[in-house]
C-alpha cells in the first residue's frame, strides 16, 4: 500500500509535465509561448511575500531566541503531564504552527534521544506528520495576494491544530 503511494508521489510531477504540454499541443495551444506568458508572474508573486514573511519570521525568531518559548514550556508542562502529555513534546507542539524547520529539528532531537520506537518518539512523529505550519502558511498565502486582514482564518487554524494535537495524543495512547 505505502509502496504504491510512494510510487504515485514519485511519478506525479513527471506525469503532469508530460501530459499537460502534450494535451495543450493537441488542442493547438502554442505551448512555449503560453508557458512563458504564465510564468511571467512568478517573480512578482514571490517578491510580494517578503514583507509578510519578514514580519512573521522575525517574531518567531525573537520568540525562540529570547527564552520566551522555554519559559512557556516550563510554565505549562506540569499541568500537561497530568493528562498524559509528556513535557518533552511541548516545545514541538508550540513550535509546529510557527516554523516547520524548527519543529522538525525538535522532533529529530526527541527521536534521537528517546529512540524512534519509544512512546515519546512515536508521539512526536505522529504530531510532526499530522500538523502543518499554520501561521507560516497563512502569512505566505495571504501575503502573496496582499491580504492583511485574516478575519477568522487564524481561529480556524488554531482549532484544527489543537484538535490534531489532542487526537494525536489520544490515538498514541490507544494504539502505540
Amino acid at each position: 500500500m505505502f509502496e504504491i503511494i510512494n510510487q504515485i508521489s514519485k511519478w506525479a510531477v513527471p506525469f503532469i509535465l508530460l501530459v499537460v504540454p502534450s494535451i495543450a499541443f493537441i488542442k493547438k495551444v502554442p505551448v512555449f509561448e503560453t508557458f512563458v506568458e504564465g510564468a511571467e508572474d512568478g517573480f512578482a508573486t514571490a517578491i510580494k511575500t517578503i514583507p509578510f514573511l519578514v514580519a512573521m519570521l522575525v517574531a518567531v525568531s525573537v520568540f525562540r531566541a529570547s527564552g520566551a518559548m522555554q519559559l512557556m514550556t516550563d510554565l505549562f508542562s506540569p499541568y500537561l503531564s497530568k493528562i498524559g502529555f509528556p513535557a518533552e513534546v511541548l516545545p514541538h507542539a508550540i513550535m509546529r504552527p510557527l516554523s516547520g524547520g524548527a519543529a522538525l529539528g525538535i522532533a529529530t532531537d526527541i527521536i534521537e534521544h528517546h529512540g524512534p520506537d519509544s512512546f515519546i518518539g512515536k508521539l512526536v512523529s505522529t504530531m510532526q506528520g499530522t500538523s502543518d505550519t499554520t501561521f507560516y502558511v497563512l502569512t505566505l498565502y495571504f501575503g502573496s495576494v496582499g491580504i492583511s486582514r485574516y478575519r477568522y482564518a487564524v481561529a480556524n487554524g488554531l482549532c484544527a491544530d489543537i484538535t490534531t494535537l489532542v487526537a494525536s495524543l489520544f490515538i498514541a495512547h490507544a494504539m502505540l
Partner: peptide
C-alpha cells in the same frame, strides 16, 4: 512559482 505558473497556464489553456 515561475515554473508552476507556466505549467498551470498551459493546463488552463488546454
Amino acid at each position: 512559482m515561475t515554473f508552476w505558473l507556466g505549467i498551470m497556464k498551459l493546463a488552463e489553456a488546454a
